[in-house]
Every structure is written in C-alpha cells, then in structure tokens.
Amino acid sequence: MNILLETAAIILFGSGVLFMLVGSLGLLRLPDFFTRTHASGKVDSVGMMLCLGGLALHEGPTLSGLKLVLVIAFVAVSSPVAAHALARAAVRSGLKPWRAPGQGGPDR
C-alpha cells in the first residue's frame, strides 16, 4: 500500500515535471505573446498542480499535506485570472494576435 502510494506520487510528480518542461519549451518556441500564454501560463500551471499533488500524496494526511492541497487550490483559482488579466491588458494596449501565414491575416 505504501509502495503503491509512493509510486503514484512519483508518477504524478514526473508527469508534472514533463508538463513544466513542455511549458518552458512552448514559451521559447511559440510565435507571439498570446500563443505563449496558452503553452506556458496554463500547461505550466497544470504541471505545477500535478507536481504539488504528487508531493501531497508523498506527504500523506498531515497538516502540511493539507497546506499543499490549499496551494493547489489557490493556483487553480489564481492562474486563469492572472492569464486573463495579462491577455486583456495586452489587447487593450493594442497588441494584435499573430496569424499563421496563408490564413488571410497579416504576416509578421
């Protein structure tokens, strides 16, 4: 049982780290601010929630485990709000979304 929990924790944490790696790569590779927000801000926060979930499983039902769950809940609520606020600020300041070439949009 204990080994089972530990394995689950490691799998959760590992997949979380992979998602964070993809988030970082996306931040590097994607063409403009809005697409980067997709890949990094959110794939990244999913990865982070998985990581913290793995740590919470590892910690077990203690006060620290509960705090880890609270951190996950806070991130789940705050990350979309922050991403939305950032995107809205970008649109309001006149940033135009990038369009793939050949879609009728302006190339950049």
Binding site: S40, G41, D44, M48, L52, V75, L86
Partner: peptide, 13 residues
C-alpha cells in the same frame, strides 16, 4: 511579465 510569472510558478514547486 509572462516569463516572470512562469518563473514564479516553478519557484513555488
């Protein structure tokens, strides 16, 4: 700003 917030996320973990 986006980069800074991503760095913040990873720092938490």
């Amino acid at each position: 700003l986006l980069g800074a917030s991503v760095i913040g996320n990873k720092t938490i973990v």
